[in-house]
Design a protein around this nucleic acid. Structure first.
Lengths: 267, 267
DNA sequence: ATGTGTGAAGTACTTCACAGCC
DNA sequence: GGCTGTGAAGTACTTCACACAT
């Protein structure tokens, strides 16, 4: 089943746009920070600023969840935190496995943001027998042979792949065969998965290349404008000038949420 | 519009859609793999499959760059590699600094994909004096005090922030003041930057939360269909409780580096 | 024949702007 | 008066489908 169109039966409330879903964690982080400061209510304007989006978008986003605000007043912080958490599925515990405990995998294991918000590192898995038993971030690394057993025993449905590119597809297939239905892929490879499995990728080199594209364009524009900037000169502030240009837009204006106690990342 | 005289030849990099720019690195990677296998030409269908997109989208994307294909034949691999590289600005060298050499920063420094493709780690910077001089990935770490000097001396325009969230905004401001105009942010914080500065973020916990959202939805659908998936069954039990309206106590606390998670929330 | 390049149609997302409730 | 919630308008992106070059 599920082949072809995933029509949504227009069942009213259950059609949250993907773009909205992607922003909910941002709002949640901003709200959590407010909550920690014991701020009771917040307006769409304030919250939007904290989350780095505009207020109309935020209100529209929230409208997909329901009417959780009060006109003339704003949103109750605690209540919203709860509603968004629930919507995101964070009121339950999600055991996660990390496969590939190299530099990156170890860094991820140590990343505190992991442990927070309902995610729990259930196991670290690596193909190197020499790694087996060694603790990383306090968790003993297990050999790939155990992969299927671990996933079943722990009821893992989310897997993180931090292996070299060459191993990623194979690891992915084993994860999926064992029951994982969501994958976060750090390997620079396109993974192919069966229908019903979600994959999200995090790719450093792609991000850098996108930045390089815009960087190059800026250099071109400056040159065309007769400005001489060896990338080291003073900053320019032609804020008003680039208003109507479609060029770089403020595309990259979105951002990670705001303050919230970090995790670890030593140093 | 008969002739292409008065009109924009489209063959210019005049406003390539952001979504297209974000896919160019993907195409480039697939093309590079083909190039290494000495494949001379490729069709939109084949290349699209390798990049994980559909062929119409790929052709549309390429049409923004110009007409680099041959009807009835396909695209010349080497030629396309060059054109895309040029478009992305990868034919020049981009010195990059990484600020925050903790687990993640070190992992990034060691990441090979960095060195390839025109990016060069010009310096590693950390606030911890004890780190100074220590080599990571063969590059000696320098103290934050040197930040401005390094950026100017090396002509750095791209900075990577891998510090704890609390330090990110400040580091960002120093980078920008020193001349950096593109930032890749790994810290879980919204950075605010002046106009003209691009920021892209990579946020593990946001990605996980998005996956959790879809995962929860799948669980709901399966339950509704009466289906039972083996690996999911174990977790299902605890998941079943979710519908309760226990507002008071959420597991969505904040980050506890580990150990104690404030039970009484939020704050 | 075959596969690109692209208008046109379709879909998704954003922003506007204002009615309605506090 | 202030601020939410939302139709309507606007913009960005995707997919279709086919003319046209080789």
């Amino acid at each position: 089943m599920a082949t072809g169109r995933t029509h949504r039966p227009a069942t009213r409330s259950r059609g949250i746009p993907e773009a909205t879903v992607a922003r909910l964690p941002l709002y949640l982080r901003a709200l959590t920070a407010l909550s920690e400061r014991s701020v009771p209510t917040v307006s769409s304007e304030e919250l939007a600023a904290a989350a780095g989006v505009n207020s109309a978008k935020l209100r529209k986003d929230f409208s997909y969840l329901g009417s959780y605000g009060t006109r003339g007043v704003g949103y109750d912080v605690e209540y919203l935190v709860y509603q968004i958490s629930r919507e995101l599925g964070l009121t339950q515990d999600w055991p996660v496995v990390i496969v590939g405990i190299g530099n990156l995998g170890a860094a991820l294991a140590n990343y505190g943001g992991f442990a927070s918000r309902g995610f729990r590192v259930a196991a670290l898995i690596d193909a190197d027998p020499a790694m087996a038993g060694k603790p990383v971030a306090g968790i003993p690394v297990q050999h790939t042979d155990e992969l299927e057993k671990i996933i079943q025993d722990e009821g893992v449905s989310i897997g993180v792949i931090a292996t070299p590119a060459g191993a990623a597809q194979q690891v992915c297939e084993r994860l999926v065969a064992a029951g994982v239905t969501s994958i976060l892929n750090f390997a620079p490879t396109v993974l192919s998965v069966p229908d019903g499995v979600d994959v999200r990728k995090v790719d450093l080199s792609i991000e850098l290349q996108i930045l390089a594209f815009h960087e190059q364009r800026k250099a071109g524009e400056l040159a065309a404008a007769g400005t001489v900037v060896p990338a080291v000169a003073a900053r320019q502030e032609s804020a008003a000038v680039r208003r109507g240009t479609a060029v770089g837009q403020e595309s990259v204006a979105d951002q990670g949420p705001d303050g919230d106690v970090p995790a670890v990342m030593p140093t």
